[in-house]
Amino acid sequence: MSVSRRLFLAALGVAGVAGGSLARAGDLPQPLVAFDDELKNGFQNWSWAKVQLSVPAGSGKAIRVEGDPWSALVLHHDAFSTEGYTKLTFLINGGKDGNQPLMIKATADGKMIDASYVIQPKAKTWAVVEVPLKDINAVGKTIDGITWQAQGDPYSAYFIARIQFE
């Protein structure tokens, strides 16, 4: 396991990893992985931004995203319940420039839910982001995707990896 993967898992509190707490297998719901080196578990790229899937990034692969004002990375899935999940987690790197303001939104019936969580990834730095589902109005709901939407300016490439619901 790579150092970055161990640090990511430790930051998420995964058992048996540098500083993680021990947990019994039945205590936690199984994460629903949307992207880990490639799209997983039925997730599809429905983006309206310039997106490259599975771009080499360190010891793994990431999604490279850049675009015009209001463009977005959109990962679609057949409708599923978020029951048992409390957060969306992912790794993000702002690329050479960073500071791209991104609104993270859940979608239901193909429409964005009217709540968002805003981030601005740092340049040339990988960070773990944990988005509480309550902050994007997706707790215990049936949703069909997640959107990372830019604001009113064009933006340089950012990279996102290891996307999952926990």
Score class of each variant (00 low, 15 high):
S2T: 11
S4P: 11
L7Q: 13
A11T: 01
V14Y: 12
G16T: 07
G16D: 03
V17C: 07
A18K: 15
G20N: 00
G20P: 08
L22Y: 04
A23V: 09
R24Q: 14
R24E: 13
G26T: 00
D27N: 06
P29S: 09
F35Y: 14
D36Y: 13
D36Q: 10
E38N: 09
N45L: 06
S47F: 08
W48S: 03
K50L: 12
V51R: 00
Q52L: 09
L53T: 02
V55A: 05
P56M: 02
G58Y: 01
G58P: 10
S59L: 05
S59M: 05
G60S: 07
R64L: 09
E66C: 03
E66H: 09
W70R: 03
S71W: 07
S71H: 07
L73P: 08
V74G: 09
L75C: 10
H76A: 15
H77C: 05
D78Q: 14
D78L: 08
F80S: 07
E83H: 13
Y85I: 12
T89I: 12
F90R: 07
I92E: 04
G94Y: 06
G94R: 06
K96L: 14
N99L: 08
N99M: 12
N99S: 10
N99R: 08
L102H: 01
L102Y: 06
I104L: 15
T107P: 07
D109C: 13
G110V: 03
I113W: 07
D114E: 15
D114M: 11
A115R: 12
A115P: 02
S116Y: 15
Y117K: 08
Y117H: 13
Q120G: 04
Q120L: 08
K124G: 04
K124I: 06
T125R: 10
T125C: 14
V128Y: 10
V128A: 14
E130G: 01
P132D: 07
L133S: 04
I136N: 11
N137S: 14
A138P: 00
V139W: 05
G140V: 08
G145A: 00
G145H: 04
T147G: 05
T147R: 14
T147N: 08
A150Q: 08
D153R: 14
P154F: 02
P154W: 01
A161P: 05
A161F: 06
I163N: 00
F165G: 00
E166A: 13
E166C: 02
